[in-house]
Nucleic acid binder design. Sequence first.
DNA 1: GGCAATATGAGAATGAATTATCATTATCGT
DNA 2: ACGATAATGATAATTCATTCTCATATTGCC
Lengths: 132, 132
Amino acid sequence: MAVERATRQRDAIRSVIQASKRPLSPGEVLHAARSEVNALGLATVYRTLKLLVAEGAAQVITLPGESPRYEMAESAHHHHFQCNTCRRVYDVPGCPGDLRRLAPRGFTVEHHDVTLYGRCRDCARRKMHASR
Amino acid sequence: MAVERATRQRDAIRSVIQASKRPLSPGEVLHAARSEVNALGLATVYRTLKLLVAEGAAQVITLPGESPRYEMAESAHHHHFQCNTCRRVYDVPGCPGDLRRLAPRGFTVEHHDVTLYGRCRDCARRKMHASR
DNA sequence: GGCAATATGAGAATGAATTATCATTATCGT
DNA sequence: ACGATAATGATAATTCATTCTCATATTGCC
């Protein structure tokens, strides 16, 4: 049976995701992890992300119209914010509460996703300066 | 300048979307409109959907991990429900309310999306019978 | 250190959704 | 009904994210 090995690239990828306070796309992971492992390939990023998700260490975050992003599995229920300017995605700690009541009669709600859109702190600041 | 013409296929596509109480994928539109125009092509569906959106008659609904669906433009703010069984998407009239407070400090919220997941009425009923 | 087995990297291949092509057909103002 | 022009349908082409391939490099146990 296949035994799993520890490699520089896996360590780099794992630590990049752990260090990030926001979900990262495979491309973002690649970019960030290359400061650790220079010749890192995209295929390895995909392979490792799949591993991390399979072992429950990471989870997939899918927002409308976006390809998947990855973040370390968090126990706390939370949602996400996407910046309309830089397109980056951030965690949002809260939750609007019980949404079961919104569903039409006869529908059973099992879970929900909430996505906020707007301008992130960085882009808000940038905008402010630009329009000075 | 290009003058826009009324055709059987456009009428069929428009009426299919208007008649539907839920957002439809291009494939669903094609299928439904073929009962009206037999030889309808997928390209025409895409072209017409784009037209309808451009003129503001229809709007694009994008849910996480899903390709776009289309529904007639509605004035009322609302959200969507996706059935975990049949994958169909339904309108949900309500809204959890003001979500601005959830965003971290420095973030500006401009709009939001809420998606509920669970079992739709049809699938709940079907499940009930199956497990009799 | 040696070696069998796993992991990697680069690029090719795939898959799914959407768009482009173009010869043919349909629309609509006259 | 005619004719200029827009629309259609079939399918090829494109796009993009993801997976596969396979020769080479690494890892971990002895």
